[in-house]
Amino acid sequence: MKILIAEDEPLILQTLELKLKKEGYDVIGCTDGLDALQKIDAEQPDLVITDIMMPYMSGLEVVRKVKQDDVQKNIPVIVLSTMGQENIVEEAFELGADDYLKKPFSLSELSIRIKRLAKKG
């Protein structure tokens, strides 16, 4: 299973990449929304995990573009939010996001959500 992670903080991205690779996933990392969108086009991942606040293009915009695209709209998207972004999470769900996690979150919880969405898909 191929997972794309969009997170602008390289340290977090690395930890997430390592964890998911350990669990046997193919991981594609990117540090901004624009890069994420290009890689989604090129790599067609099975699941996308995106932070909300990112340079060049926000996570919300990534969700919007993915869910508006006929080919990509079935790719499950998990949104990573921080405290105080409740309204943005609601907007993400309206745009079609499949799940969300509020920072700080536990990596085992992330794994469970990935598995749940993978089963759905």
Partner: peptide, 15 residues
Amino acid sequence: ENLITNKKTFSGSVA
């Protein structure tokens, strides 16, 4: 700085 960034993001056993 590195540990702080990670701690703000992760909870559970990683934290």
